[in-house]
Design a protein around this nucleic acid. Structure first.
Lengths: 352, 352
DNA sequence: GCGATCGTTTGGATCGGTTCAAATCTATGC
DNA sequence: GCATAGATTTGAACCGATCCAAACGATCGC
């Protein structure tokens, strides 16, 4: 069923015997047209099968698309499958809903398509979800000359407008919580520090990490533990990627002569996998081992026991990001939203 | 930081001393322009801060937006939170990814905004996710005169292009599976039949349901069980809404003198809640009670025990829907995709 | 030296609307 | 009866590009 020769506003106007201007008013500013005329034009339009003013035409004049694009260097399904992305998207969409703004999803497996997708997306601005490969995305977006903010950018280039969290402060809270409970033997179950890495990291590897998120969290842990007299050298940091690497890491941690009484996990995902491993190996949480996560995903509330974690204020991040785009008032540099500690049942004082 | 007076193609052309046509070619058909000229125009553009051809301008000429809209009469967060919607969106986005098509999310809490959102969405067509309130959505979409297909439309108006599943046949498979295992005492744990209802339904209420999905599944169960000599009157159908109503229903079912040996659940969600209730009340699945779900969501594979269920071919539905829109070749009427039965560990022969 | 050919460039039409100043119509006041 | 304010309508300009037929310029063959 091919689209028949499309009827345009001018056709309707001619047929109805009014000017193009009046016809336009009938649709976009009906109150200014005399009732009689309006009815007639509307009737003519319906009779001719006119589908209403074409959006693209209006757009050209108006300039505003009234939609924001959310982009990621991931397949599009990422938006619906990754827990963090999903939680964030839900918040972003709630804000967009409230302000009647549309959302467009932009993604690409390959760089080639990403370029085109970014360049041709019909949006007023972009929110960039970039866990990795973010720089290229930022660069491309910049060329569109549209407002944009990056969320969770793993690199810290001061010139990129970013809304993020203070990872050092967050990690600090997690470490302080455990230290105040009396723990003195720790291990850090980290996320990705550099492309594809995994395993125990040296001090130098931590500080020279590609991804600042992981680095900052490690630094936050170390710094605060030092205040409690725990030497950084005594707190091993394991980098992990997939589930297998997480399990390998936690196994290594508990293979030590004096295993830690508390685990600092750099993400809830990592923490949850670790808790599973612990349960399988007869170690009780929090009686034998305390564990603190990071992110505050929903699953962390529902785990057994519920996970103590540092929760990211996703709603606030989403609100600020959307506002910034809509008002074309992106932060000049990086802006941080404070994190909060949610104390649940996965932490307790160490035994003895 | 207000956007400075935007530079347009014509400005660049004038500044570079070439015609608008040539300038346009530099960007959209570079190979046709002499290297020297191209370099010069590009340089001028960069110097003037030209952001590349404006999408809206190009659009007007091209006609194709190269994006499809997905609409629902739900808040936008629905796309990221509801399990069924999410699974479907993930599939749809995978198909879009493959064909380089963009996606726009359209939604609205209130009808007022829905109208505007549908009318102003920049898309080449729509996929409608309508579990309820679908008719209004269809009507609005029709006015855009763009191709669209409805998915899972709960009403069966033959004139609406729909890609769906054969609920009767699916329910039939579920019932047959249990009957062939030897079950003869059943109860149906239903989903929503009419706006806000819950509780035991009469035959008339089932047949007069507002939502054809629930009705068809019930009919499928009854019809097939009858073939095995089980009278429909002996198979109670409970309508449910939220978790509480599901628990109430299953409690009622097992309060009977001769409780059923098998449960036919109209959705995996309902089935999973029921399994939880059964576990809490010391009834083992499948030893004491067998249960079959419907939908085939991911959670059904991971439950304990894994749930036997009728799986919806979401990937295929998504593929056909997207293809139909992109090729402007929507099915004239309803098109059904076959369902499959996934036998897992929640079903077994009845005891004794 | 001249016409044909090929690669570039040009200018104007077009996409489908919105907008606004000016023109036209209507009703009111005196 | 006529000027005047207010309500409608008109027509042309414009939004920012793409497209294409025609013009142009250089090279080539004879």
């Amino acid at each position: 069923m091919a689209t028949k020769a499309t009827v345009k506003l001018a056709d309707v106007a001619r047929e109805a015997g009014v000017s193009k201007g009046t016809a336009s008013n009938v649709f976009s500013r009906p109150e200014v047209v005399r009732d009689e005329v309006r009815e007639h034009v509307l009737a003519t339009a319906k009779a001719m099968g006119y589908g209403g003013p074409s959006v693209q035409g209006r757009l050209l004049r108006a300039g505003k698309v009234n939609a924001i694009g959310v982009a990621a260097v991931e397949p599009m399904a990422y938006f619906f499958e990754d827990p963090w992305a999903r939680a964030l998207m839900a918040e972003i969409s709630a804000v967009c809903d409230a302000s009647g703004t549309g959302m467009a999803l932009v993604s690409a497996k390959n760089q080639q398509k990403l370029v085109w997708n970014i360049q041709s997306a019909l949006v007023d601005g972009f929110i960039l979800l970039c866990v990795e490969g973010g720089e290229k995305l930022v660069e491309l977006t910049r060329e569109r000359h549209l407002p944009f903010v990056a969320l969770a950018l793993g690199v810290d280039d001061k010139s990129i407008p970013t809304i993020g969290i203070d990872n050092i402060a967050g990690a600090s809270m997690a470490a302080r919580h455990l230290a105040e409970l009396g723990h003195r033997r720790f291990a850090v179950l980290g996320t990705e520090f550099s492309e594809g890495g995994a395993g125990l990291l040296t001090d130098g590897q931590v500080r020279g990490a590609t991804f600042s998120t992981s680095r900052d969290r490690a630094i936050g842990y170390w710094r605060t533990l030092a205040e409690f007299g725990v030497a950084p050298e005594s707190v091993p940091v394991y980098e992990t990627q997939d589930v297998a690497s997480i399990r390998t890491a936690i196994a290594a941690i508990f293979a030590a002569a004096e295993p830690p009484t508390a685990i600092l996990a750099m993400s809830d995902r990592v923490a949850l996998v670790a808790m599973e491993w612990l349960a399988e190996h007869g170690l009780r949480v929090p009686e034998d081992v305390s564990i603190v996560g990071f992110d505050g995903v929903k699953e962390a509330e529902l785990s057994e026991p519920p996970l103590t974690t540092i929760v990211q204020p996703l709603a606030e991040i989403a609100r600020q990001a959307v506002q910034a785009i809509l008002q074309d008032d992106v932060p000049a540099q990086r802006r941080s939203i404070p994190l909060t500690l949610a104390v649940r049942a996965s932490t307790a004082a160490p035994r003895g």
